[in-house]
Nucleic acid binder design. Structure first.
Lengths: 231, 231
DNA sequence: TATAATGATTGATATTTATCAACAGGCTGT
DNA sequence: ACAGCCTGTTGATAAATATCAATCATTATA
């Protein structure tokens, strides 16, 4: 099921280099390259499970993954992860456990890199460390926005937020094709699948967007923004 | 209102030194000492407001503060902060803005240290940086637990979580005296003040705890734990 | 092709939670 | 002592949301 291609290509040729590893020199990239291996996941496959040990960090190089907390009967999706970004759980600096699960939404390719190598680079390269801190901070800010959306907005506002997230941050276009299920939509907005579907239907009836299967288009951005803001 | 005592004492004599600054040498502590000033806040006073620039980080040396997001009509308390801990918002590594507000719950003393000094120390001292990353990670894990509690548990489970938080993490004893209001209790558990009061009443009627004004005692820890876990 | 399995949708209903209104008790300042 | 103003408390009601059950659509499988 999982196809491991150890050292299939080189980090120096990878577009990770210019994005998340822009502060690393070629010696440092070699260090990563030598400790990494590449894995392909099919849509739906689990990348790692909450609670398991976490010996490496995961860089998504193609496809789309989700990270989610398995809660009390239902899941909460914390974020979707697309290329080129890495999944670096807080457990690495605490107890080497995963605090959330990750799975492939679309077919995915990931590079797994030994966490100790990553931590070594953080210690030795202040620019890399600072960039990492910035990413962690952005993640944290996103989590704050999410927690406010989920706890203080009603369902229409939450769905509006998720639609903007998908359109602006994940698929990055406006008529876009959903690769996530309705259940995922519900798990992103903290409600039941049925409620999520109903809100979509209302938006459709009010002419705010069109939904046809997995095709979605926002027709009235301004009104959707207003729904997001009034909660 | 705010009483500034610049350089009232020395960082080398402060118990911050052994806790959050344990990895700093005396030269580095001097650096912090020289850029810091101490402020006293009365209960209820605002330490900083969400959205304002954030030129320093705040170390709470006495009293109790809360950090909270001002959302849509109501507040969400992210955490209570007691000595010796620091409030270090994610904005420092992003755009130098505060992403949440902080205010004194009890009378508070805080030391404000220039953020650039902090960032300099992070760059130059890998042990300090790693300890900081560990603290950020723990914070992040706490946020995840909180987001799950708030989005997936019903009111009794959420109140149970808050009571454990207060008893185990903040006041650190079992018959404890609440220094926060019922509204704060509600803002910690993401519900209306009336609902929070009602749940407390139910717990009292079931013999799980006693509440008399601000005195609270957990009588049946096991049952309260169960309520927390079943949601 | 027929058939099962899965995901999406809809309606009816029950549950959870917020809101509104009223009131009590304890402070404050006069 | 009294009025005014908080915070806390309670009850009645309304709104938001989940759950359950049934149906439809689509895809996978024998």
């Amino acid at each position: 099921m999982i196809n491991k291609n150890h050292q299939a290509s080189n980090c120096n040729d990878c577009n990770c280099k210019t994005q998340i590893f822009k502060n690393l020199g070629s010696t440092e990239l070699d260090l990563i390259n030598n400790s990494r291996f590449q894995v392909d996941y099919k849509g739906g496959e689990i990348i790692f499970k909450q609670g398991t040990p976490s010996p490496y960090f995961v860089c998504i190089t193609s496809g789309l993954a989700k990270i989610y907390i398995e809660g009390y009967g239902k899941n909460l999706i914390l974020a979707l992860v697309k290329p080129v970004d890495y999944i670096f759980g807080p457990g690495i600096y605490v107890d080497n456990r995963h605090y959330y699960s990750a799975s492939a939404v679309e077919d995915c390719t990931a590079c797994l890199v030994d966490a100790s190598v990553f931590k070594k680079l953080i210690r030795e390269n202040p620019d890399f460390a600072e960039d990492f801190l910035k990413r962690v901070s952005l993640q944290s800010i996103f989590n704050f926005e999410q927690i406010v959306s989920l706890t203080q907005k009603q369902m229409p506002g939450r769905i509006a937020d998720v639609i903007f997230y998908l359109s602006e941050k994940i698929y990055c276009k406006n008529p876009f094709e959903l690769s996530i299920s309705r259940q995922d939509l519900a798990d992103l907005s903290g409600m039941s699948k049925e409620s999520a579907i109903r809100i979509l239907k209302e938006f459709k009836e009010e002419g705010i967007l069109t939904v046809a299967g997995n095709k979605m288009e926002i027709l009235n951005v301004k009104q959707l923004r207003q729904i997001s803001e009034t909660g």
